[in-house]
Design a protein around this nucleic acid. Structure first.
Lengths: 148, 148
DNA sequence: CAATAACATACTAAACTGATAGGAAAACAT
DNA sequence: ATGTTTTCCTATCAGTTTAGTATGTTATTG
């Protein structure tokens, strides 16, 4: 059930674009270097994010990626679903289940309920929220460093 | 993020043992036939359930599986974690994260929160609950069949 | 026109998934 | 005792996914 590196790298990349994007587009190379990720692989991950309408790219010299929408308008759920597909444990929308007789459906209902609880948490947090939380963490961390 | 067939088969098997186990141990062959599952494959799935302390087996003629504990004492969480490993999206217990600097940790915290919301739902439902819900569903279903 | 950076595609090793197959060991019946 | 039954154990396999490398193409800037 662990999230793939694809998803975690993609999430990191979205955060990086959101945090560093104020001074023009952010290059894949930058993100890769700063976060110690394989640049070519990261490029492949950017593609679905772009095609999914989360990132906008400009090519050529001084090009790079920026957010396609405001960070407040992008939820973590959206990012993960773009990279991972549905986050649900079973096909919750399917009417039929286990052929004709609804054998497993009590289980299926539960699994749907469980995954929806998870998705709900992810849907309520935007990229802007995450960036803010991260900045707070970093502020606290460097304050502690100073004390020590 | 879909659950593997391994887990759903295993869950079905646990339900089958719980429902049919009153009249002695339940054979893999029975479960496989009734639920249209590959018997050999299902056998492999029984092993971790037995070793995980959820099922008890008796070999030989008229052997089979029974629950190692009362159905009220077995949660769906336990069953799934036995089959699937941890259900969390990331290693929530790890202190370190992304090397020295806590880069992704705001994200990690969120992912932990989300997976815990899911696990919490699964932890609050026992095999006995599922069996009861299933019986209700089947009762309603056959009542409807009768009307039609 | 040259440099730059996204874009696209092909390839690969390793792991995982969902099985199938066959035999060994234990319990039971005759 | 012997044969049947059923769990138990191991090997094998085809297909898919994951994570990554490598390389070349296209668009933009200077």
């Amino acid at each position: 059930m662990k999230l793939s590196t694809r998803s975690t790298y993609g999430l990191r990349a979205m955060m990086a674009v959101a945090m560093d994007g104020s001074s023009g587009p952010v290059m894949v190379k930058e993100i890769a270097e700063r976060h110690q990720l394989p640049a070519n692989y990261l490029e492949q991950i950017m593609t679905p994010l772009r095609k999914g309408g989360l990132l906008a790219a400009t090519r050529g010299a001084h090009g790079g990626y920026k957010l396609a929408r405001a960070a407040q308008e992008i939820t973590v759920r959206e990012i993960l679903e773009t990279l991972e597909g549905s986050l649900e444990l079973v096909e919750c929308n399917e009417v039929a289940c286990c052929g004709m007789q609804p054998d497993l459906c009590a289980v299926k209902d539960l699994l749907c309920e469980a995954s929806r609880a998870m998705v709900e948490v992810l849907a309520q947090v935007t990229l802007a929220d995450i960036v803010e939380r991260q900045r707070e963490k970093e502020a606290v961390s460097s304050a502690l460093m100073y004390v020590i």
